[in-house]
Write a protein that binds this DNA or RNA. Structure first.
Length: 232
DNA sequence: GCGACAG
DNA sequence: ATCTTGTCGC
């Protein structure tokens, strides 16, 4: 997989904001997807002691959620965590990660927000526009916007509003569990996004895709933490 | 000025 | 995100 859009990553926060404003105009907020046979989850874990990070992706069958492919990439942190510029911290590593994938997924569920962002260009939207691929933002916590608690049943949801603007949904993926924040990433409607998040959510709060990516990332880290040296 | 602030 | 013990609940 290769990006269809190219832009520098070694930029200042000010330049990053200008870039977001320009690229945000390319986000497609309606359904523009074909048959969904495979879904991918992406996750990034950090290890402060080494300024190192692990980006991981797991591609699964959309119906059975069985693993089709999984990859991980170890890199270093170059951009600081700045609320609103999150994608500039994680995407450089994710781009390297995706260059190794052989199965292009039909849909990607991201850990973080899509257009539920000050400039309507969170991580999921940025990734989607970069690869012109359908993406969903599925965050564990709110970034911007307000919502009232959805009814306490799996599948119930309530709108996430930035003033009068509907920017996402608080979706209850399990009963008695805090809702996740779903938003349009790229080439998908909010309704369809919620549908696929529910489809990928089976026994836990988060989609299996992100859980599997998180698990693979941890596994990759443990495996490379203490390299095995064969005795001579 | 003060509080909030995806991962 | 990560640093971390106990603790409440099914």
């Amino acid at each position: 997989m290769q990006p269809v859009i190219q832009h520098p990553w070694d930029i200042t926060p000010s330049e990053a904001i200008d870039l977001q404003i320009r690229l945000s105009k390319l986000v497609v907020k309606q359904d523009q997807l074909g048959p969904i046979s495979s879904i991918a989850g992406i996750d990034v874990a950090y290890h402060k002691e080494n300024d190192t990070l692990i980006a991981s992706i797991v591609v699964v069958d959309a119906e059975s959620l069985e693993i089709i492919e999984e990859h991980a990439w170890s890199g270093t942190t170059s951009f600081p965590y700045v609320p609103g510029l999150f994608s500039f911290r994680e995407l450089p590593s994710i781009v390297k990660l995706l260059s190794a994938i052989t199965h292009r997924p039909d849909l990607i569920i991201c850990d973080g927000q899509g257009i539920a962002h000050p400039r309507r260009f969170g991580l999921a939207s940025h990734l989607g526009v970069l690869y012109d691929i359908p993406t969903i933002g599925c965050g564990k916590s709110r970034f911007i916007g307000e919502y009232s608690p959805p009814l306490n049943e799996r599948g119930c949801q309530s709108g996430l509003f930035d003033g009068d603007k509907l920017i996402g949904a608080a979706l209850r993926t399990q009963k008695n569990v805090k809702p996740v924040l779903v938003s349009i990433g790229h080439r998908i409607s909010l309704e369809t996004a919620c549908h696929w998040v529910l489809n990928a959510t089976r026994h836990y709060r988060l989609p299996e895709t992100t859980r599997l990516a998180d698990r693979y990332g941890r596994q990759f880290y443990e495996q490379n933490k203490q390299p095995i040296t064969l005795p001579n």
